[in-house]
């Protein structure tokens, strides 16, 4: 396993949980995302982790923009080294495509474009090393009864993208999998899904991090193209966003 992980979408709670878990396992974690200015400092992710934890830094970029993401990944390479692990966490929010909405297909379009840009760019880095792990994580951004309904387009798109890319990248030793809340599964009846407590008492972000930790390990070398539904509790509170440090990504936090 390489020691460099890129996490996109750490402003979502599952993304942040995955980043913290990878740090805890000693990987250097680069957070690539837009500078929201209202959230988490890498130091907060590292807070309470052991001395063996990896380094962490934020690299501001628009992860749905090819040039912006490529620039950020280049800076990750010069700071930490070549990317071996990519965790992309995308929100499953409303397209408002439906009867009441007027926003169009924006949410799904943005989420899937982020997967595409991040996946293509990072995979280019991984191919040379003949090893890589890509995990696409779905984060519900709508709670309550609407969560299932609003997540369906993104969830389906994430799954199809994951399966397709897994087939393409397997010859290079790169696995591609995705993680999503069981309560959002298409096979789940909405009436017993997001509105009710689901599965274990473990919050979904933690459950997603548990599975992601396994999927990026050497032990999961034979697992690719799969969709892991985890039965964690969906979170209710709005997650905090990662915050770019004043050194714009050149500073590296270390516990």
């Amino acid at each position: 396993m390489t020691r460099v992980a890129v996490v996109v979408g750490a402003h979502h709670a599952p993304g942040a949980a995955c980043a913290r878990r990878l740090l805890e396992r000693g990987l250097d974690v680069a957070l690539i995302g837009e500078d929201r200015g209202d959230g988490m400092h890498p130091g907060e992710l590292l807070d309470g982790l052991p001395q063996t934890a990896g380094r962490c830094a934020v690299f501001p970029a628009d992860p749905a923009d090819s040039a912006s993401f490529a620039t950020a990944l280049g800076r990750v390479r010069s700071t930490f080294g070549r990317t071996g692990v990519l965790v992309t966490c995308v929100g499953a929010g409303p397209d408002a495509a439906s009867a009441s909405g007027d926003a169009g297909p924006g949410a799904t379009r943005a989420a899937l474009r982020t997967l595409f840009v991040a996946g293509r760019t990072a995979a280019g880095d991984m191919v040379g090393g003949r090893w890589g792990r890509i995990v696409n994580v779905v984060a519900p951004v709508v709670t309550g009864e609407d969560a299932w309904r609003e997540a369906q387009a993104v969830l389906a798109g994430v799954t199809a993208f994951t399966r397709s890319v897994a087939l393409e990248l397997a010859p290079f030793g790169i696995t591609v999998n995705c993680v999503a809340p069981a309560a959002l599964s298409p096979h789940e009846r909405p009436s017993v899904g997001p509105a009710a407590p689901h599965g274990s008492g473990v919050p979904y972000p933690q459950a997603a991090a548990d599975l992601t930790e396994h999927l990026v390990s050497d032990a999961a070398a034979a697992v690719t193209g799969q969709q892991g539904y985890v039965t964690g509790r969906l979170f209710a509170a709005a997650p905090r966003a990662p915050h770019a440090t004043s050194d714009r990504g050149t500073g590296v936090g270390k516990r």
Partner: peptide, 16 residues
């Protein structure tokens, strides 16, 4: 990957 994601999103959107 593009076509699969788009068509799967159509299926998901249909459910919604």
């Amino acid at each position: 990957a593009n076509y699969a994601a788009a068509k799967a999103a159509v299926s998901g959107f249909t459910r919604t």
